[in-house]
């Protein structure tokens, strides 16, 4: 297994404000798989993603990525873990506003040992003509494509996407999903997508549904629908 999550628990606060967000999550993902984590607000899906991404610590349990255990890692080790293994895509793109498209991608290229070719990436993502523009000069879809390019340039083994289409209209959302699908096929990138969009689950290999901090349902999608054919995005 490329990603293995075992009995992960996570809580916040103390006494009256104590809340257990993850109550013992266990799951796994194979290399090259696309997986959707679905759930309502407050179900714990983003917390799980953060724990896998090393952005948040878990109270107990185990998460191994490509054989590396991240539980108990120190901040510096977590930093190296993210640097070497992960790519992130956010709902609101989080591009650096005073850097151009190309420069935003360079942020991650700079720290990668074996980065992808930026020009090729720009071409793939349809950003070549926008590479010298600032984020404020781009549409939402273009900004998200830039964010994807930034995440991919490191050639990460695991791509964590937190509501990647949450801020986009349906047409742009479809374009982005097509892109993710294409990347998955082209580079074999393992992807974990957190979303509350019900349609996205149809295009991925695996679906995990979380409710109240526990996995309510988990299944392999045998009949994947290409992103281009997704409805109700």
């Amino acid at each position: 297994m490329y990603l293995e999550v075992k009995d992960v628990k996570k809580s916040y606060g103390k006494d009256n404000s104590y809340i257990q967000v993850l109550k013992g999550i266990s799951t796994s993902l194979e290399e090259g798989q696309m997986c959707v984590i679905q759930g309502t607000s407050g179900s714990g899906k983003s917390t799980l993603l953060n724990c896998i991404g090393g952005l948040d610590t878990m109270d107990s349990g185990s998460i191994t990525v490509d054989g590396t255990e991240i539980f108990g890692m120190k901040p510096n080790q977590l930093s190296d873990y993210r640097r070497d293994n992960l790519g992130f895509i956010f709902q609101f793109y989080n591009l650096v506003p005073n850097l151009t498209v190309r420069e935003n991608i360079q942020i991650c290229e700079y720290i990668a040992d074996d980065p992808l070719d930026i020009d090729e990436l720009l071409e793939t993502l349809g950003l070549t003509e926008h590479q010298n523009k600032f984020p404020a000069q781009l549409s939402g879809g273009q900004q998200q494509r830039c964010a994807i390019a930034r995440a991919l340039v490191k050639n990460p083994k695991l791509l964590l996407c937190d509501e990647p289409t949450g801020a986009l209209d349906s047409k742009t959302s479809r374009d982005i999903l097509i892109l993710l699908e294409k990347i998955n096929e082209k580079y074999g990138t393992t992807m974990l997508i957190v979303t509350h969009n019900n349609s996205i689950k149809n295009m991925v290999h695996k679906v995990i549904i979380i409710k109240d901090g526990l996995i309510k349902k988990e299944y392999e999608n045998e009949t994947r629908t290409p992103a281009a054919e997704l409805e109700d995005l």
Partner: peptide, 12 residues
């Protein structure tokens, strides 16, 4: 925000 972001990316 930017610092936080590049920390996510794994900057030392």
């Amino acid at each position: 925000m930017g610092i936080s972001l590049i920390k996510i990316f794994g900057y030392r």
